[in-house]
Design a protein around this nucleic acid. Sequence first.
DNA 1: TTGTAAGCGTTATCAG
DNA 2: CTGATAACGCTTACAA
Lengths: 334, 334
Amino acid sequence: MSITIKDVAKQANVSISTVSRVINDSKPVSDDIKMRVVKVIEELGYKPNPVARSLVTKKSRLIGVLIPDISDPYIAELLNAIEEVAKTYDYDIILCNSYGSLESEEHYMHLMQTKQVEGMLFLTYKLRTSHKNFFEKSQMPVVMINRDASELNLSSVSVNNFDAVRELTSKLFEDGHEDIVLIRNGKESDVFGPSQYEGFKQAHEDHGKSFDEESVYNGSFQVKHAYDIVRGLIQDKKVPDAIVATTDSMAVGAINSLVDGGYKVPEDVSVAGFYDTKIAELYRPRLTAIHQPIYDIGAVAIRLLIKQITGEAKETTHFYLPHDLIERESTRKK
Amino acid sequence: MSITIKDVAKQANVSISTVSRVINDSKPVSDDIKMRVVKVIEELGYKPNPVARSLVTKKSRLIGVLIPDISDPYIAELLNAIEEVAKTYDYDIILCNSYGSLESEEHYMHLMQTKQVEGMLFLTYKLRTSHKNFFEKSQMPVVMINRDASELNLSSVSVNNFDAVRELTSKLFEDGHEDIVLIRNGKESDVFGPSQYEGFKQAHEDHGKSFDEESVYNGSFQVKHAYDIVRGLIQDKKVPDAIVATTDSMAVGAINSLVDGGYKVPEDVSVAGFYDTKIAELYRPRLTAIHQPIYDIGAVAIRLLIKQITGEAKETTHFYLPHDLIERESTRKK
DNA sequence: TTGTAAGCGTTATCAG
DNA sequence: CTGATAACGCTTACAA
């Protein structure tokens, strides 16, 4: 039997409403009574029962975070930020890992509703109609990560993927590479796919290069996939000058494949990654990559969500956070 | 205004108790009434309010998971398992990331209590008295991960770290290495430190080698730390034949340091890791490492916890899961 | 400024 | 088998 507001009231010789008032300081309470109550609370070690509280206030102080893969280092770092700032606002996180399966996502979206989370952070590999429908129906505050969700009339935060890929590709052209291949997350996945694709194309245009659809490969987030794609390239004797991967681990997969096939990186082929997760610095050669302010993306997203929950933010907005091009050892000037 | 049990009762022309009964099928309800109610529930899309439910049943269907670092790949994989099996039992996870800070851990442990989680999974770098006190007071079911917690009278699951290090070190001796160094997580951290240390020592004894305290270095979970330790070794011209790191990323840090210092791995020095996380296969040279059934550890832990919650498991037990020695390219026979 | 009492949406007890 | 009704612990009008 835990100790309740009643116990405190009795012990302090006041009504429970008074106790409630001092807990929330929602209404004026005379100083002496307040002190008395506070003292009793301390003595008894009373903690308000959040469940009872939620029942009446309809607020759970819970935020749902729906992501496709916890073990993705990018997502892990995001989570660090989310968790940390949520804590400072006294919110807790309910974590849901969908493995990218739509079924799972749907399951969780409903769960969130019934669990009365106050808002949710959403990161998906592929955005679908059923997501859209859900967000429209449930009036729950949502912010989307790593994707511009203005089309859904949702707030979101990400880097500008178009610019990032364009910049990275351009840099490679400027370094004297002619034949560049893009390995991106499966065609299916259009999280940031479209604009990355466009950025890649744009860079060709910028440098007066002809663009060939064939130079874009659709991998997946799996390392092995990138590995296999490059192995295919080697077998077909279509090894390019440079490879842009839209994930650090895909870049690593590509490099491994190249090395296993007898090529040197960056001497024979330049390879660049995306995100700049820990492995970029850890792997040898160190990865040239687009650095994303991952922690900040998470932090901005959760703050934005909390503002929406409290009503401080009304309009939906999209935040683009700045990225950087970090040159390391996996690319070179020709 | 969400739809409640009352609405269903009214619509179906029964009392709310009847509705409650069909929801939980806690008591017999005649078939026709049951059908009527079910139908109304479907039509109205009624979902019981878990908060109200919790208030009366004192059950939250929430499990707290307290860990020191989400972005540690080992922990991320653990989380995958935890999350996945929790879902099948219809529990949700509240995730708390302490960054290894005791203060944070204490904060969260109390939070768990007030949030009425039904049980918790606990993973810490260092076990302290205040943890012990907490677990004793709160009668909450707890299972400890990666550490034998029998001394706290708590259930736990891990591999046998003593055996694992002993085996790995022995293998290195058998391969002809003489001078082996152990780089483990900081001395402070005694998660698995003591028994790993003992295992290392035991291997020396097993092979009739003299053991020198000096061959044990206390790093931290940080890659950089391992890197620096090895750099120090190089500067002091005390480069050993082989290095055992108690973490894959520490092994990578060690190798990087060696390579940057002009040594070849495994030609000059053999380096072995621990855990066998993704990077072991990704990095070149591929890491020789102790493989841990990480997913299984998580899965067993959460199942055990749930059993404790439901009362199926009464006794506290410690599970040792089997490990493997995976030989790859970062070590060699001399 | 303080207290009384009516909920919040369920489950559970107890009659019928 | 079914229906009132009392909790659960708290917030919040409404009175005093």
